[in-house]
C-alpha cells in the first residue's frame, strides 16, 4: 500500500517538475528579445558562437524537439549562463539557494516552536481571556506586512538601540570559505581561528531576519493549532476519557496532543510556501545573500536565463518539500492511510 502510494507521489513530483520545465522553456520565448539569448545567456554572440549555440539548443528544429534538447541540458546541469555575472546559472543558484533554505529553516523552526505551544495554550483556554489575548496578538502578527515589520525591527534594534546588525549573514571581516552554503555549517567546517566569535557573529546577524518571518508565520500557526485543539477538547472521546476518571491534563496528553496536531500538519506544511515568499522579501531588506535577493537583481538587470532558472529552482524546492512532508504526514497519521489518491 505504502509503496504504491510512494510511487504515486514520485510520479506526481516528476510530472509537476516536467510541467515546470515546459513553463521555463516557454518563458525563453515569451521574454522580450531573442529566445536563443534568453536560453543561453550569451549576449551578442559572433557568427560561429551563434551557429554553435543554435545547434546546441536545436533552434531550427520543431519547438517540441527544442524543448527536449533543453530538458537534456537541464538534466546535465547546463542551465545557461547568467547575463549579469557571466557565470553558469546553476552554480549561481547553488551558491544562493542554501542561504534562503537556511533562513527559512530557522524561521520555520522558530514559528513552530512558538506557534504550536501558544496555540495549544489558547486552544485549552478556548474563549477565555488568554485565548482572546493570543488571538489579538495573532491577528496583529499576520496582518503586518513582513517588509514593514523588517524595517521597524531594523529601526528599533539596529539604528536606535544599536544591538543587532542589519545586513548580511556574518560580518565580512570573517573569511569563511564557502563549502555547503549554509553559514553555520561552513563556519564549523572552516579552519578559522576564532570559530566561537564567528558563530556568535552569525547568530547576531540571524536574529532580525528570522524574527521578521517568525512573527508573521507563528501567528498563522497559532491560529491553526488553537482551532484544532479547541475542537479536540470538545470532542466526545476527551469527554469520555475525563468521565472515566482521567484528569484534564492526562486526557489531553494521552488523547489530545496527537489527535490535535496530526490533522493540522498539512496546513502547517502549506505555510512553508508563504514563509519562503516572505523569506525572499526579507532577504532583500537585510541584504541576505539568498535566492530572493539574487532573483530580484536578475529581474532588475533583465537577466532572463537567471530568472527562468531561479523560478525553476524555487518551485522545485517548494514542490519537493510539500511532497516529502505529505509522505511524512501519511506515515505518521494512520487516518490518512486510507485515501489513496494524492492531493497537494
Amino acid at each position: 500500500m505504502m509503496t504504491s502510494y510512494l510511487l504515486r507521489r514520485i510520479n506526481l513530483l516528476l510530472v509537476t517538475l516536467f510541467i515546470l520545465t515546459i513553463a521555463s522553456y516557454a518563458l525563453a520565448y515569451l521574454f522580450p528579445g531573442e529566445a536563443l539569448q534568453n536560453l543561453s545567456g550569451q549576449l551578442n554572440p559572433n557568427d560561429t558562437t551563434y551557429a554553435a549555440l543554435s545547434e546546441k539548443y536545436a533552434m531550427d528544429a520543431h519547438p517540441i524537439f527544442g524543448f527536449f534538447t533543453y530538458l537534456g541540458h537541464l538534466l546535465h546541469g547546463d542551465w545557461g549562463t547568467s547575463i549579469n555575472s557571466g557565470k553558469p546559472v546553476l552554480d549561481e543558484i547553488l551558491s544562493h539557494l542554501p542561504a534562503t533554505l537556511e533562513l527559512s529553516t530557522y524561521a520555520l523552526f522558530m514559528s513552530l516552536l512558538i506557534g504550536i505551544p501558544v496555540g495549544f495554550w489558547a486552544g485549552i483556554r478556548f474563549h477565555r481571556s488568554v485565548d482572546y489575548a493570543v488571538m489579538t496578538g495573532s491577528v496583529v502578527g499576520f496582518s503586518i506586512p513582513v517588509f514593514w515589520l523588517a524595517l521597524i525591527l531594523i529601526m528599533l534594534f539596529s539604528l536606535n538601540l544599536g544591538l543587532l546588525p542589519m545586513s548580511g549573514r556574518i560580518s565580512l571581516l570573517f573569511d569563511i570559505p564557502e563549502r555547503s552554503g549554509f553559514i553555520v555549517l561552513d563556519i564549523l567546517l572552516s579552519d578559522v581561528p576564532n570559530k566561537r566569535e564567528a558563530l556568535y557573529n552569525a547568530f547576531l546577524h540571524m536574529i532580525l531576519p528570522t524574527l521578521s518571518i517568525t512573527i508573521v508565520t507563528s501567528a498563522v500557526v497559532m491560529r491553526i493549532t488553537r482551532r484544532s485543539v479547541a475542537d479536540v477538547i470538545q470532542s466526545d472521546y476527551i469527554k469520555a476519557a475525563i468521565a472515566r476518571g482521567l484528569s484534564r491534563t492526562q486526557a489531553l496528553w494521552r488523547h489530545g496532543v496527537r489527535n490535535a496536531l496530526l490533522p493540522i500538519m498539512p496546513q502547517i506544511v502549506m505555510q512553508f510556501t508563504v514563509l519562503l515568499t516572505n523569506a525572499m522579501i526579507v532577504e532583500l531588506i537585510f541584504s541576505w545573500p539568498g535566492i530572493g535577493n539574487w532573483l530580484l537583481q536578475a529581474i532588475y538587470q533583465r537577466d532572463y536565463p537567471a530568472i527562468s532558472g531561479g523560478m525553476l529552482a524555487v518551485s522545485a524546492v517548494v514542490i519537493f518539500f510539500t511532497l516529502t512532508m505529505d509522505v511524512l504526514v501519511r506515515a505518521l497519521n494512520p487516518l490518512k492511510r486510507r485515501d489513496v489518491h494524492g492531493t497537494i
Binding site: L161, G162, L163, S171, L173, F174, N194, A198, Y200, L204
Partner: peptide, 12 residues
Amino acid sequence: AGCSEYRRTGVS
C-alpha cells in the same frame, strides 16, 4: 547592550 560591540571581536 553588552553585544553592541559585536563587531570588535576576533579578526575584526
